[in-house]
């Protein structure tokens, strides 16, 4: 575990906490894309299914449980919570996210570390995470009233993968040249998608 990765995980955790705070404190999910939240839940379920088979560390297992339960809680709130669900911008959140799931799955079948169920799920989760923010970015561009917490949520979410890129650079020079091209390319695409958001976020 290096500082970049730890910072990345903490930034990711913080982004989820900011979103939970926004939804809990304001009892509203206006400006939040439910589709992006559903995609993230799929990403975590597909990537962390080794939770019960491979024990890497207490930290690793605890964080996996936190990410799975928090993303499921957010989706549940946006679908079932009587007050919150009424504030969901259904008409605005129109991105056809099924296309993203299908594309990530096809890519994972073609490009993976090994053609095994677990590796295909892992690659699928990496590709899907790279594009999962798209419905949210589209919603932000449509919505006039981007409240601070939602903006901060997206900012921290974008920043976390940038820290991971630093982590991969660090590991490349310290742990030898493993082939991590799936993570590399997806991480660059993922962070790149935030570029214009960061541009406007800092200009605002």
């Amino acid at each position: 575990m290096n500082a970049f990765r730890f910072l990345g995980d903490m930034t990711h955790l913080f982004s989820v906490l900011v979103l939970l705070l926004k939804i809990y404190a304001t009892k509203s999910c206006s400006g939040v894309s439910r589709k992006t939240q559903e995609l993230y839940m799929v990403v975590f379920l597909a990537r962390y299914m080794d939770l019960f088979t491979d024990y890497i560390s207490l930290y690793n297992s605890v964080m996996k449980v936190v990410f799975i339960t928090s993303s499921a809680a957010i989706v549940w709130c946006m679908r079932r919570h009587p007050q919150v669900r009424r504030t969901y911008d259904k008409e605005q959140d129109t991105f056809r996210h099924v296309v993203l799931v299908a594309a990530a799955f096809v890519l994972a079948l073609i490009f993976n570390e090994r053609f095994t169920f677990r590796e295909i799920c892992w690659a699928f989760s990496i590709y899907l995470e790279a594009v999962a923010i798209l419905p949210q970015l589209v919603l932000l561009q449509r919505g006039r009233n981007v409240d601070n917490l939602t903006g901060q949520y997206v900012f921290f979410l974008g920043a976390y993968r940038a820290f991971y890129i630093l982590n991969w650079i660090y590991r490349y020079f310290t742990e030898g040249h493993h082939s991590r091209w799936i993570s590399w390319l997806s991480g660059l695409v993922q962070t790149g998608l935030y570029a214009d958001f960061f541009y406007y976020y800092f200009l605002r």
């Binding site: 990765r5 690793n60 590796e119 892992w122 991971y164 493993h178 991590r180």
Partner: peptide, 10 residues
């Protein structure tokens, strides 16, 4: 079984 490299990350 050996964890494929890079899968020790979140």
């Amino acid at each position: 079984d050996d964890v494929v490299d890079g899968h020790d990350e979140l």
